[in-house]
Amino acid sequence: MTTSTPGGGSPLRSSSGIWLVAEREIGSKLRSKAFIISTVILMAIALAGILIGGFASKSGADDKTPVAVTAETSSVVSALPGVEVTEVADDAAAEALVRDEKVDAAVVSGTGPTGVTILALKDAPSSLVSGLSQAPEVQILEPATTNPLLRYFIALAFGLVFLMAASTFGGTIAQSVVEEKQTRVVELLLSAMPARTLLAGKVIGNTILAMAQILVLAAVATIGLIATGQNDVLTMLGTPIIWFAVFFLFGFVLLASLFAAAASMVSRQEDIGATTTPITMLIMAPYILVIVFNDNPLVLTIMSYVPFSAPVGMPMRLFVGEAQWWEPILSLAILLASCVAAIAIGAKIYENSLLRMGSRVKLTEALRG
């Protein structure tokens, strides 16, 4: 498929037109100092969060309570986590270490139910007391698959990355469409290529930028986890991050098509919000839901099959081990079908509204043409 360029020049192929528009979108964004600075800040925040969390967990693990023990109590205390054991000859030597403040407490033989006694100068370490206390047998019916705090931060990370990337690049597409309409540059562009070619170029260009940012964030996260020795967390996150990138790719194409279509219905920058607000709400919903309901299996399951929230919901379920092997495939198939439908509807609205200036085009009119 070819079209003539303005002034009677050589015809322009659709594929060439798509890449020309995509290169223009990418180049304009990369030349923007605001975009570069915001990207660097986002990377720095992500790396700082990982480093701080890793060092804090490591320092917490290394912070052990010094405890004096005798030969009779050594086996009991050594099995406790977070305890640094110093074995002495007898109870008197253990008591002497406590009085000299060389240890926080001492565990010696006793006549109570536990068979041991804790000696402390002023206050006994609560972790030591609870560790040596007799407790009833506990049976957990629904054990947590991950640390609740870690689960919350992973949910926050997935939701925030999706929100920031989708809203940033979706907003860029909307502003670009309206700017071209407002300056009437779109009339020159449409004389060189079809509207669908122009739309495809904008979507592809911004998708490349968004995916590049996601991949850089993934690389930063990997480096940070390795640097802080959080290899177990990295192992758990490997598959979910890959699926997040795949779901985000098609989810963003869906959203980008809708952003371009919504923006084509207005002719002024001030009116963008009137048509793009519903799409922005669709982007914010997964962010809010995954933070509030990250420990609710039912909500996460529903999110993982809804096209707008699947890029967040399904990777989260994979991280906590609540998804079967076939569920990401089924969810991706639903997302792909929704993506095709959104592109078709968005292209129709875009074609029918792009050259209509003045007041806002109604959705029914844009669909009818």
Rank of each mutant, 00 (worst) to 15 (best):
L163E: 10
L163T: 08
E322H: 02
T172F: 08
M284D: 03
V161H: 02
P328K: 00
A333C: 11
F162E: 03
M211H: 05
V138C: 06
L160T: 14
A68V: 02
T301Q: 10
L189N: 02
Q269P: 06
I140P: 08
G313C: 08
V185E: 02
T86W: 09
K29G: 04
L363F: 15
V103K: 03
R268L: 00
F250W: 11
A344L: 12
L363G: 10
A144E: 14
E25Q: 13
A22R: 01
A135G: 11
L354D: 00
E142Q: 13
M314Q: 02
A263K: 00
A219W: 10
D90Q: 11
P136G: 12
A210T: 12
T73W: 09
G131W: 05
L97N: 03
S75C: 11
Q182H: 07
V107M: 04
T277V: 13
E95Q: 12
V233S: 05
S28H: 09
L234H: 10
G358A: 05
F35N: 07
G49Q: 00
L97H: 00
S353A: 09
A94I: 02
V88H: 02
S353F: 02
I208P: 03
T146E: 05
T197I: 10
R356T: 10
V88W: 00
M357C: 05
F244L: 09
D63E: 15
A71C: 07
M316A: 04
F169R: 01
G9Q: 10
F244H: 05
L119H: 07
I329G: 09
I208T: 12
G205F: 04
F153M: 11
V161T: 08
F252W: 07
E179Y: 00
P240E: 06
G358E: 04
L237R: 00
F259M: 01
T222F: 12
I343M: 15
K348F: 11
T172S: 15
P136E: 15
G7W: 11
A342G: 05
V40E: 05
